[in-house]
Design a binder for these strands. Sequence first.
DNA 1: TAAACATATTTATGGATGTCAATATGTAAA
DNA 2: TTTACATATTGACATCCATAAATATGTTTA
Lengths: 107, 107
Amino acid sequence: MDYRTDVRRIKALADENRLAIMLALQHGEKCACLLLEELKISQPTLSHHMRLLRDSGLVYGRKEGKWMHYSISPEGTKSFRAMIRSYARCDCEEDATGTCPYKAEDE
Amino acid sequence: MDYRTDVRRIKALADENRLAIMLALQHGEKCACLLLEELKISQPTLSHHMRLLRDSGLVYGRKEGKWMHYSISPEGTKSFRAMIRSYARCDCEEDATGTCPYKAEDE
DNA sequence: TAAACATATTTATGGATGTCAATATGTAAA
DNA sequence: TTTACATATTGACATCCATAAATATGTTTA
């Protein structure tokens, strides 16, 4: 099997600054200039991190004039969690599927 | 905030061979010698990967004579998924908590 | 148009990481 | 106690990655 894509997505989250960015975006869209103020990194470094997060599908980017607005991608984070769950699990764990009539898809 | 621990845990999964190991252990405990046959890596390299997986809490190790038996840690993978969920999410996502009377804790 | 501003890209560099050969440690069998 | 075997550790090396300075691209304003 080929795990390259999954590894690249996981690596997108395997960095202190990118974790901080994910938390910073959790309550809604933010401009790059705002993120630049919160994190103590240079502008090229932030741009680099945002490209990795966008390429992984976790974050969405919207250009408005000369400003870039970033936000969490609900679909991206959902499929990311599902991907993680496919590796970080074992048969001995009880699976919620079927036990909940409403929504067990994401467990 | 300090993300070092979380980054180290995420990095434990950010490798092709370690993803393959997690899948190989998904159906139950396996000896190191068995893993060595399935993966195309040297013995020192496997030992290195197993140490990272054990340090992250995802995998449990049990020594029996001269053999090492590895297995998925249900608690480790569960807390890992919870940790991932704290970063890979956004407020706009509907939270299953409360909608399912049985078990919504893990999503 | 030119100037100012926001972000992206290029380039270089130091540090982290995966890999394996050689070796060490520990255990079981002869 | 030897010998054989399974796994861990050490050391060296190549590659990957985070970082920032310099520069480029694109946008708005004067």
